[in-house]
Computed example of a mutant assay.
Amino acid sequence: MNDQATPPPVDMGPRKVGDLSLEESNAVRARQAGRSKAMAFVLFGLCALFFAITVVKVGVWG
């Protein structure tokens, strides 16, 4: 078996986007997070819509 200990995680410091400053990098990541949440909301809405259309067309609950 492998008796070697796993190395500790490496701290790479604050994460930056490209050559931007830390504040600009945080702003970019905040916008990305906002877009991700909006996309999740849209996808969830589409899933609910497709489910409702399928239920109506199949006639399971109506």
Rank of each mutant, 00 (worst) to 15 (best):
L43E: 10
V60F: 14
R29D: 09
M12F: 05
A38N: 08
N26Y: 02
L20E: 03
I53D: 01
W61M: 07
A33F: 05
E24A: 15
Q32R: 13
S21L: 03
G18C: 06
L46A: 09
L20Y: 11
K37Y: 07
G59T: 05
G59H: 10
F44L: 15
L49F: 13
S21P: 01
V60E: 06
D19H: 10
K16Y: 13
R29P: 01
L20F: 12
G18Q: 04
C47D: 00
R35W: 06
R31A: 14
L43F: 08
K57N: 09
V60D: 05
V17P: 01
G34P: 01
G18E: 09
E23T: 09
L43I: 05
S25T: 12
N26G: 01
R35L: 14
G59M: 06
R35V: 01
E23M: 09
V58M: 08
R31N: 12
S25G: 09
R35G: 12
K16S: 06
L43G: 00
R29G: 02
A33H: 14
V17I: 15
V17D: 04
S36G: 12
G45P: 01
L49S: 03
Q32T: 10
C47R: 03
M12T: 12
D19K: 14
G45C: 14
V58D: 05
T54S: 14
S36R: 15
L49V: 08
L20I: 00
G59L: 04
A30S: 11
D19T: 07
L49N: 03
G59S: 09
V60Y: 14
T54F: 15
A52Y: 08
L20N: 11
R29V: 07
R29H: 10
L49C: 07
P14L: 10
A30K: 13
A38W: 10
K57Q: 13
A27W: 00
G45K: 03
T54W: 15
A33R: 15
I53P: 00
S21F: 02
L49E: 01
E24M: 09
G62V: 06
K37H: 09
A30I: 02
G45Q: 07
M39L: 13
G18W: 07
R35I: 02
A40N: 06
V60A: 13
V28P: 00
E24V: 07
W61G: 01
M39H: 04
T54R: 10
L22R: 07
S25D: 06
R31H: 11
V55W: 08
L43H: 02
S36V: 03
V28E: 11
R15D: 05
W61I: 13
M39Y: 10
F51R: 06
P14Y: 04
G62P: 01
